[in-house]
């Protein structure tokens, strides 16, 4: 003990334990016991050595687990298939008429508006004005009657889904991030800012 008497005898936890020996040497007054290594502690090491060896053999020798590439490719293929099926189903049920109907449904356009504000407003401006609404907006205006890539609801829908035909500077394809349903809602919201063309009966 560095300074004798610092720990009262009564508080010495090893006073009655003859197995706990103090090593003779003292370094600048610091002494050392030489107690056994706790078994539970040793086992935390042994267990992970065993796990290490086991996993390595399972992976490299027995080919038990797929590689990362196999795993992610497989998961991705599943997602792609499910998405394609969904989109096809949706597109099959959609036509210009249905989209015009959706554009007059407040619930749908409400959801479309919030999605628009997150995904689209940074380029097309919250008021849909695009580059007309300020220099910080680089998107085309969506509130006028000019449509660069076609103005029927399905054509608008296609541009959002697949992205601008001009890949180098136009809009990206949104189908990965938004999915068909949300794109339809966004298109409905955009249409809601336009008058229903003559000949379309939204109640029909």
């Amino acid at each position: 003990m560095s300074e004798p008497g610092e720990t009262p005898e009564a508080l010495d936890p090893y006073a009655d334990n003859p197995d706990v020996v103090l090593r003779e040497h003292s370094y600048d007054g610091i002494q050392e016991y030489d107690q056994k290594l706790p078994n539970w502690w040793l086992w935390t090491l042994y267990i992970f050595i065993i796990v290490f060896i086991g996993y390595w053999v399972l992976y490299y020798q027995l080919g038990f687990f797929p590689s990362d590439y196999e795993r992610v490719d497989e998961q991705w293929a599943e997602i792609e298939a499910a998405k394609a099926a969904k989109l096809q189903e949706l597109m099959g049920s959609l036509d210009d008429h249905v989209l015009w109907q959706m554009s007059r449904n407040g619930q749908i356009t409400g959801r479309g508006e919030s999605a628009f504000n997150i995904a689209c407003a940074s380029c097309h401006a919250p008021d849909l004005g695009g580059s007309n609404s300020g220099p910080q907006y680089v998107g085309l205006p969506l509130d006028d009657s000019e449509w660069k890539y076609g103005g029927t609801p399905l054509e608008v829908m296609k541009v959002v889904t697949e992205g601008s035909p001009d890949k180098t500077k136009g809009m990206i394809a949104w189908k990965e991030q938004l999915g068909g349903n949300q794109i339809a809602e966004i298109v409905a919201y955009i249409l809601s800012k336009h008058p229903v063309p003559e000949g379309v009966d939204i109640d029909g």
Binding site: Q31, E32, Y33
Partner: peptide, 9 residues
């Protein structure tokens, strides 16, 4: 003011 618990540790 106490000795180190275990040298072998």
């Amino acid at each position: 003011g106490r000795p180190v618990y275990s040298y072998r540790l």
